[in-house]
Amino acid sequence: MMLEKLIKLIHEEFPETKGNYIEDNTLIQDIIPLTSLNIAILLTSIELEFDVVLKPVSLRTCNTINDLCKLISIINNED
């Protein structure tokens, strides 16, 4: 469920990824270059969707979509 929401969010925030098939083991760097702007977009949209404030450094530790999903889930449960 969370994975589906995250993939939908990425497609919405980065329309250029709509042609890409994103799954849990897709490398984030392969679909979104992690520039400062793109990191800010991800942080903002994830906070709005999941009510989770990620640190930029935590985001950079995530290689795959699944890693990011797990991170959001962990922080969600901590709260």
């Binding site: 400062s36 990191i39 800010a40 942080l43 404030v53 640190k55 930029p56």
Partner: peptide, 11 residues
């Protein structure tokens, strides 16, 4: 550091 500015806004 724009990302940290966002953390400040959110938190």
């Amino acid at each position: 550091d724009g990302s940290r500015v966002f953390s400040f806004i959110a938190e």
